[in-house]
């Protein structure tokens, strides 16, 4: 039996636009590029509605397409992505912001975040996650999202952007520590 295509398929696609834009903007850090990626995603969906299997979520299917469009966009603009936006990343290691004694041991125990299972599912927490991710320096943010949202392996990212593994790990290390610091300040300490 052929898959069921909803009768209001086009309308449903248009309704997903703002959701898709949110992620495309986060990843590409450029409104025009994000618009392009989302438009291409919707066009691809319109061109092959039969590829959508109604048993999966429409959003999930669209995000799958969008991820490919974002990677294509990065490929096309590889030079701009890897070089031109590198200047805004400071070289400070966020580990230096943490409270260590001169001998390298913790001056005070890190805060206990408890077991925030419910927190992680709340809309407010997601808004903080969005804000903290957007606050990351451009290169760190992009690499972090390639790793965590596009779910690319470190090897794939290095190959895609022509980075050395060492360079990638340094940037991801900084991004993760910054995100931790931001979540602690804006969520866990503020509860």
């Amino acid at each position: 039996m052929p898959p069921q295509i909803p009768t209001d398929f086009e309308q449903q696609l248009v309704e997903q636009r703002s959701y898709l834009m949110r992620f495309a903007r986060l990843q590409l850090r450029n409104d025009a590029w994000a618009e392009d990626a989302v438009s291409e995603t919707i066009l691809a969906a319109l061109a092959r509605p039969q590829a959508f299997e109604a048993r999966s979520q429409l959003k999930t299917w669209l995000v799958g397409i969008l991820k490919h469009k974002i990677i294509d966009s990065m490929r096309q603009r590889q030079r701009e992505v890897t070089l031109d936006s590198g200047s805004d990343d400071d070289s400070a290691d966020p580990l230096e912001h943490m409270a260590f004694k001169a001998d390298g041991h913790f001056a005070e125990k890190p805060a206990d975040w408890g077991n925030p299972e419910q927190d992680l599912k709340s809309r407010q927490f997601m808004a903080i996650m969005d804000a903290c991710t957007q606050k990351l320096p451009a290169v760190q943010g992009r690499l972090f999202l390639m790793r965590e949202w596009l779910e690319m392996s470190s090897e794939e990212i290095c190959k895609e952007l022509g980075l050395t593994a060492t360079n990638l790990y340094v940037q991801l290390h900084r991004a993760r520590l910054r995100l931790r610091e931001c979540l602690e300040l804006n969520w866990f300490a503020a509860r």
């Binding site: 949110r22 999930t60 992680l120 997601m126 996650m129 965590e148």
Partner: peptide
């Protein structure tokens, strides 16, 4: 865990 939830958020 937060990243996992965030990835699926909205989906």
């Amino acid at each position: 865990n937060a990243m996992k939830q965030w990835r699926n958020y909205g989906a």
